[in-house]
Nucleic acid binder design. Sequence first.
DNA 1: TTATCTTTGTGATATATATCACATTACTAA
DNA 2: TTAGTAATGTGATATATATCACAAAGATAA
Lengths: 234, 234
Amino acid sequence: MIIQPDYKIFSNCLTCDDRSCASQALSVSELELLSKNCNEAKFEQGETILAEGSRTSNIIYLREGLVKEYGKKRLQEEYILQVIKPHSYLGLHSIFSDNNNHYSYAALTPVRVCYIDLNVFTQFIKENGRFGYKILSSVCNDSLNNYHRFIDKHQKKIYGKLADAILYFALVIFGKNEFDLPLSRKELAYLIGMSRESVSKQISVFVQDKIISVDGRNIKILDMIRLKNISKMG
Amino acid sequence: MIIQPDYKIFSNCLTCDDRSCASQALSVSELELLSKNCNEAKFEQGETILAEGSRTSNIIYLREGLVKEYGKKRLQEEYILQVIKPHSYLGLHSIFSDNNNHYSYAALTPVRVCYIDLNVFTQFIKENGRFGYKILSSVCNDSLNNYHRFIDKHQKKIYGKLADAILYFALVIFGKNEFDLPLSRKELAYLIGMSRESVSKQISVFVQDKIISVDGRNIKILDMIRLKNISKMG
DNA sequence: TTATCTTTGTGATATATATCACATTACTAA
DNA sequence: TTAGTAATGTGATATATATCACAAAGATAA
């Protein structure tokens, strides 16, 4: 992690291009207060931003880059809950349930985050209902998306799950039909919830069927209609 | 559904024994406003309280009884997200994300609920930060519990999952080592995420191993230590 | 009461996916 | 460069669980 030099520590949240949706509910004076209680840090690919089990007195806001939200059950067995896009807060669910981080967060790309003082953030929620409402909405949205993804993971076969994951990256994360997967095959397997080998084999099947083309981590969707159909049929 | 006769429609939230944790943050005048915008209904076992896909202008608060939160993918295949205990709001995540119910809710026992006007509820959140904060907390808690349950469902073998479910009812729902399961075997299978037959067989194994005793829907835990161990080992 | 429908238990079989094993390729560091 | 390590692809085999099939027990209604 690289903390910015002094002259940049106090970021200006009023002029920030990466402001969260919720922060639109904040007044100028609240944004000034936020600026004073907010500082930036950078992480390299692979670095852990926040570890399971830790307690924090800061809210972490993802300005730039992709982050994986993951957990580890016993030794080795990792599972990835989701890949988090920029302009999201990390782990609000943990902070506002028992303020104990239930998952870990690691950078999948170079990442810029802001640390926001938890007391200030909580004060905003309690004193500015519109802000609180927006935070509530974003947590609810996140929950529903995760629930849906979990249920799909449970009910679909491997081809359905892989199709889901590819569509998730293409449509939700990158908004493009061609993208560089920010995960290794092993991590993709952790996200999908199957073995690395099964994922590899299913990718090969999709390539053979000319549904996608693959070059290392680069994936290009060749037949979106068929892919969506596989996802739907499961 | 039975709507209460007129003289009872306007419940008195100030003196209610079943008040939610969040409502403790409400002032007397807010509680009076709540009373005027809150009315009670009863449901029999098996009745649907709220159906997937519907939109509502009310928040539903579960005063008494147990409710299943569930969904249906295509024809037949039901999955049960969770069993909801009294003193909880139903489906807040749906209301505060897109106000479109993503899951259905049905009574597992005779149930009493309160319908609270959504505008009034939202007004409380926006104007009373402490109330909003408590609602946020409860949504976060619920999310985390569901995430954990989903991940366990994914990683554990059938015996681990069944042990989890039995412990969930014994410890979380009923707080007793002996209880009447509020679900059929089929529903239990939907909750656990496996086939009815596999669940039946695993129950028989637990009975043979003298970990539990079963009489119809009545379940008694005979060896809590072993059951917890099976749950942990997965 | 009898008849019908639903729920439940249990054995036999099928199947999707994990696991194992190993070859190949890509990456890292001396 | 070379050696060593990690990531990936792919075939053979193992295994957990679903599915099928059917009997028994309960529940429901005529």
